[in-house]
Computed example of a mutant assay.
Amino acid sequence: MPPDSPDSHSGNAAPKAPFVFATCKQGWEKALKDEAKSIPEGLRPAFMRPGLITWKCEVPPTADFVLPGIFARMSGHSIGTCKDAADLASKLGEVKRHTLKLHVYPREFPEDGLPLEEWSRIDAFRTRLLKSLRDAGVAMDDDSETVLGDTVLDVIVEDDLAAPFFAGWHRHGANTNPTPGGIPRAVIPLESPSRAWLKLVQALAFAGLETKNTHPLRGKIAVELGSAPGGASYALLQRGMRVMGIDPGAMDPRVLNYRTPQGGIPFKHLQMPAGEVDPNLLPPQADLLISDLNLAPAVMIRLVKKMQAQVQASLLILTLKINDRAVFASLQENLTAIRDFAPGPIRATHLPGNRDEICVVAGRLGS
């Protein structure tokens, strides 16, 4: 079988096959492969499709293996291509000793979000697959929401859902995206002022703040640099935050006129450049500091550092623009500069909605 075939490493027992996988935004496979060159397992590319790469490991990976770096959306141990549930069950090997969470998600994903009707099709496929795996004797957990230590079965599907699917597994840890496939189920609402709404919602999901039953942002304070026209601010207001937006540009009326259920006005606009803000106009402390400034990373970082010294936010969500070769090459240098002043831990990722930019999440939301 040729080395680039997805079946060439499927085997009969996933843990014995020294292959790993990672998904990424389609078109960013080279960045993902470049990151993989430096990890100690010694990865040799084996199979690639848009948004999906597998590697053969020179050193067998540990059970907790994840591909470190920025461009891997989801990663873990590769099982390979499976033609149906029975085929998948036969290839699980020692993984069958665990009760598995099932994550099903598409290989290719539109950057502005997958329509809910498409998610409904995928969910129906997941329901059928879950039943078939149980019928085959695999212990499965109904809930797809993960907690630390869960063993997750990743099933990556094609558009038609009828073709053979790719499977892998990973152990959910502190550095693993909690959302299946790292793909939040968010589509830009018609009333949103801009697509910054989508990027912010995806960043919140990456930070573990988009939860089903709790409202961790409600009543907390956010300061946003570069807020106009207001997509990210609008998302925060919808989640019950009080927001100060700083931007010389005009804010959308839907943000300026947003009202709480009690009739309060939770948004304040400082219509000026971020570097000219009088500290007396700022809240004494913020819970969240956001920047999506369209500036070179070094300039943006200086402004954020100055603002953070004033508001002492426990959580930062920052966008780093990487739209030229020089900036891309200095990415790690910029992350180091953020570590000098931002609260930890610091994680960076290429969100599904990101273009030539990455998202940095630093710290944790305070109680």
Rank of each mutant, 00 (worst) to 15 (best):
A298I: 11
C359H: 08
Y105C: 04
L318V: 11
M251H: 08
Q26S: 15
G69F: 05
I346A: 05
S330L: 12
G240I: 03
V243W: 06
V104G: 01
K199T: 03
G173P: 04
P297N: 02
M300Q: 15
K33F: 01
R134W: 06
T54C: 07
Q238C: 13
G363L: 09
S194V: 02
A89K: 02
P352E: 12
Q271Y: 00
V223I: 08
I246Q: 08
E145G: 10
S10H: 11
P189Y: 00
P343K: 02
A203D: 08
W197L: 02
M307T: 13
A228E: 09
H103V: 04
E94N: 12
Q308A: 11
D154C: 09
P352D: 10
L153G: 03
D150Y: 02
A163L: 11
L288G: 01
A235D: 04
W119P: 00
V311G: 03
G93D: 07
P345N: 14
G240C: 08
I183D: 04
L320R: 06
S75G: 12
P297V: 03
P273C: 09
P60N: 10
L318D: 06
L315M: 10
A63I: 10
A124N: 12
P261L: 10
E58G: 08
G263E: 09
D287I: 04
P178Y: 06
T336Y: 03
T176E: 11
L67M: 15
G69N: 08
G80L: 01
D141R: 15
K212W: 01
L282W: 03
N354M: 06
E111S: 14
A203W: 04
V223N: 01
G230E: 01
F206V: 01
A36Q: 01
A235Q: 05
L100V: 05
R302H: 09
E191R: 06
S75T: 07
R49I: 13
M272G: 07
S314P: 02
D123T: 09
I183T: 05
L365H: 02
F125M: 13
M1F: 07
P2K: 13
K321G: 05
S75E: 12
V255K: 05
V138F: 07
A205K: 04
S8V: 05
T319Q: 14
L237S: 07
A342M: 05
L200Y: 03
E108T: 15
L32I: 09
L100Y: 00
P216A: 06
E118W: 00
G230T: 04
C82S: 13
E145K: 12
P18D: 14
G93R: 09
A186W: 05
T319I: 13
P184M: 10
R339E: 15
E333A: 13
D112M: 12
